[in-house]
Design a protein around this nucleic acid. Structure first.
Lengths: 341, 341
DNA sequence: CTGTTAGCGCGTTCAG
DNA sequence: CTGAACGCGCTAACAG
């Protein structure tokens, strides 16, 4: 990479601990100690050093610190599609919480899953202290983290066969509440809108709903598939309704549910929830908008992100801590898009 | 301690260029050259080095590289409220584009504007090559970047009195199109929903609308204020409608416009756009949802983020390039929430 | 409590 | 084309 020419014309280099030391008339290591936690420095010299540092606008160089400490105080956050409406909230919470603990976020967003390898390369090069991944990870890729000794926490992803730490929002209880409520209110003709087949959470939600429906004696429920987007939910709902009239639609996430509501109400001209109930999963902000008032299961994003961060930090502090999975349950958000008993 | 710890399972340090050099039987500097652009290495030794690197899973340590080259290949991205629905899209685009140029994103999100100082401290410590800021910055804070010689580009913010690079979506043309269209279609009783007073883009949009209305002979247009959130748009619309019946509402952003639509249609039971036209600004995804089909001005996010990134990169490569402002115009998105002629 | 000394892992002259 | 030597800015023993 092209190196910038050293201090062209007026370009003064940024002050180092050495400059501060000279100005304060002490050794460089005194300055270093002054900026660390348990540094033993006499109040008098500390004062002098701080004054000198202030005068020079000195701040310890985190890059140099990282090189010698082997702690970059950076954590990689990998998110697949930021446009998914639920993730921005997750990302904001993660960033805030990490920041509160003095950790910086190195952000990686993926368009295609294939980019993950390039990302892992960068993660490795940047000596991040750990990684939180909200994207599909193959078993091999998870292994790389393990071999590299980079603590890893998956967010709403699961690694069935490998022992990897993760936090998830469990789908069973939530879907059961939705299904039970709708059945009790008289719904019988159900339809499902699944997410992309490679989404573990999406599949888990659909599976949970299907199982609960089966327990209630409802089998062979039609399932269509979307990609978690509004349009895909809209289209899937239309296909389902065309194939057979339904009185309840369960979508794998809120945005598709919203799309389904619009399709049912606007294109099919059927009242929601009077003729058709629609439910989702996530609890994104638009689900509460007055035009939708979606009945859904809200993920406890605050507790989940806090869990992810603290699990990661624990494993950064002590690399010997083994993997752990934490499962959270969602809260039923009683909107007005489904008849629930 | 010159003795390298044996690769027992606990202590395994990551391989360095020295390790690669030893395995390949060359010097460390040969390895270094091998991983740089124009490094002069004979094909034979290059092959040996690459083989050794492969065997050890060696990757250059970006932290160490940054220390010596003074280029971290990291750029700080500062965003105020990620939950604002328009910003996730911006962030995703910025990240992708930076990533394509081999730059990593160090993300900072702000809850309160007061956090900006702590963020600037971190930006400085981490030796980022530059910063893209989509948050309010005081003149003094911008000065800090200048003094620190950290290239800075503001995104949709403007610094009136100071020469700072920025990319903005210009409001005048867009608001004019909206206003003119609605007036031509017969609207006369306008109401405005502004953003928070400290938002330069928000104020600019309102000012643009007010001016255009004044040109058309419409003065003393009532203005209420929100904070860019759905609820605040909803509430503001109710207050406006209660004070005086309106036939057109102009909101400073899409999310408030959506809130206003819901207030008008659901709480006031007035048809949109038949009785009341509602328009926004941004062009966020939900604006296109069938329940809203918001008439709005879409920001050219792709071109704007590309501009921000390339402006920043240019100034990173050549620090002597002066500030520049780039103004983009939005496209009118003809939805169905306003009667436009 | 303070200074001295040794690196962290790498890029880069400058001799050979 | 290659290697020895130096230093980026800092932390961490270790003496004094």
């Amino acid at each position: 990479m092209p190196v910038k020419p050293p201090s062209d014309s007026t370009g003064e280099r940024r002050g180092t601990s050495y400059d501060v030391a000279r100005l304060a008339g002490v050794s460089q290591s005194a300055v270093s100690r002054c900026f660390r936690e348990g540094g033993s420095v006499s109040p008098a010299t500390r004062k002098r050093i701080m004054a000198a540092a202030e005068a020079l606008g000195y701040r310890p160089n985190a890059i140099a610190q990282g090189l010698i400490t082997r702690r970059s105080n950076m954590v990689a956050v990998v998110i697949s599609n930021l446009t998914n409406l639920h993730y921005p909230e997750v990302l904001a919470e993660l960033t805030t919480r990490l920041s509160n603990r003095g950790i910086r976020v190195l952000l990686f967003t993926l368009q295609n899953e294939s980019e993950i390898d390039a990302v892992m390369d960068q993660i490795w090069r940047y000596q991040v202290d750990g990684a939180i991944v909200a994207a599909r990870l193959s078993r091999d890729q998870a292994e790389v983290f393990a071999r590299s000794r980079i603590p890893l926490v998956l967010y709403n992803r699961q690694m069935e066969e490998a022992p990897v730490s993760s936090v998830m929002c469990e789908s069973g209880a939530g879907e059961a509440m939705l299904v039970d409520g709708m059945i009790a209110a008289g719904a019988r003709a159900f339809g499902l809108i699944a997410g992309p087949g490679d989404s573990t959470v999406g599949e888990a939600r659909v599976r949970a709903a299907v199982e609960r429906l089966a327990q209630a004696g409802l089998r062979d429920v039609p399932v269509d598939r979307g990609d978690f987007s509004y349009q895909s939910g809209y289209d899937a709902a239309l296909r389902l309704m065309k194939a057979a009239p339904l009185d309840a639609i369960i979508a794998a996430n809120d945005v598709m549910a919203i799309g389904a509501m619009d399709a049912v109400r606007i294109e099919c001209s059927l009242a929601v929830p009077d003729r058709v109930s629609v439910v989702g999963f996530d609890g994104v902000a638009p689900a509460r908008w007055a035009s939708y008032r979606l009945t859904t299961v809200r993920q406890p994003v605050g507790r989940m992100t806090e869990a992810a961060v603290s699990m990661l930090m624990d494993r950064i502090e002590d690399a010997s801590i083994g993997p752990e999975r934490r499962l959270f349950s969602g809260d039923l958000l009683r909107g007005a898009s489904a008849r629930l008993a």
